[in-house]
Design a protein around this nucleic acid. Sequence first.
DNA 1: TAGATTGTTAATCGATTAACAATC
DNA 2: TAGATTGTTAATCGATTAACAATC
Lengths: 235, 235
Amino acid sequence: MDTQRGVPRTHARATEPGATGRAGARDVPTATVARLPGYLRVLNGLTADGVVTTSSEELAAGAGVTSAQLRKDLSFLGSYGRRGVGYDVLHLSEQISVVLGLTTQRRVVIVGIGNLGHALASYSVFAERGFAVVGLVDADPALVGTTVGGLMVQPPASLHDVVSGADATIGIIATPAAVAQDVCDELVAAGVVGILTFAPRALRVPAHVDLRAVDVASELQILAFHDRRRTGTGA
Amino acid sequence: MDTQRGVPRTHARATEPGATGRAGARDVPTATVARLPGYLRVLNGLTADGVVTTSSEELAAGAGVTSAQLRKDLSFLGSYGRRGVGYDVLHLSEQISVVLGLTTQRRVVIVGIGNLGHALASYSVFAERGFAVVGLVDADPALVGTTVGGLMVQPPASLHDVVSGADATIGIIATPAAVAQDVCDELVAAGVVGILTFAPRALRVPAHVDLRAVDVASELQILAFHDRRRTGTGA
DNA sequence: TAGATTGTTAATCGATTAACAATC
DNA sequence: TAGATTGTTAATCGATTAACAATC
């Protein structure tokens, strides 16, 4: 009840279909991939603090996992530590970035500029972590043409052009649930290979597209399950 | 790469410490608990469509899981279906609500009313799914005293009173990462038993408090991992 | 009865944990 | 060398899948 958790997935295992294949990056378990961003975050913080070397113990504590878990996770990437010494913060950070594919900036399009989409479009953390929001789309005529986070909101009919024109590979869906599947299909048709949806509804995507879903109301309902056990109400 | 996933957790198993214990609700695996909100969502949709009876096949398809998975999950709650017939939509919906502890309305306080907090404070889906936002707190003097989603924003010094005064059991953290742990500690001291954080930082909570973390930038980084394999860039 | 569909069992699979040999 | 810490192995644990007997 007290540990931080990453994100689960019924994900296909992360095998390496790539041509030559970078050493070490092959066949990383999905559970490990989901924790890598957390490690990277801690490493970046250490770098900002001027820390040059770290240990599995320190890194794990910062990320909220055990040192055994951390070493096991890193072992799937390769051997980037030195026994008896620890890990070079900058080098490990770079290796994880390479494995996650963050050495190239990914371009993101957000569909649905309501309260949530608006917040995401203005979210500075995206830029800090290597993503560029390159397009905004909304169906509300009152919203189309306005500027949010420095970008002009485009109409739904422009979705394909916005995605392909900016060469976006990731789409974020922040629309009402009712239209989420249609938007999803259009994003896929336009060429995105990854989708992050906030719409409370199951979406279908082809096998070559990666889908991740965040449902904040479901998160609260999961909290309610444990809440009930502590406050005694609810049954 | 194509399935919907719930939320992973390094969660303690959901054992039943409650006194008498409702039949069936004991010892539900965390992976199952995380999928229950999805089933509930589909059941509510079926109810709205006037559907009276459903099958594991139909329900699973709507939730994006296999029928085997669904039946296995429901088996932890009890036997609420009829062989050869299926499930009564209303009855099953009610049983899941009881297990999740949704028969009592939970009160939620949101700390950090920036872009994201603002969006969450105005998020109608919370009310639809049985949660009441009863307090808003922010450190920005320019924001304190303003009204968002019908509630007046309170200063940080009022956090404890806002939580205990409204008897809130769940806290949502939408503050900058730098202050997230302090806010978390204050929420716990004020008596919440569940915390949902959007701050990109690992948080520590005592064993009796349940913590769930949503990190949208990490979600994008996980998508980038697969993106790299398809677009070939990034290594 | 015959057909349908659940609930459960058993097998498989993947993830976590702990311990320690390797080695800096 | 002695102490420290990694990387790996093996054991455990939990979750998923498939098949089917129970039963409506």
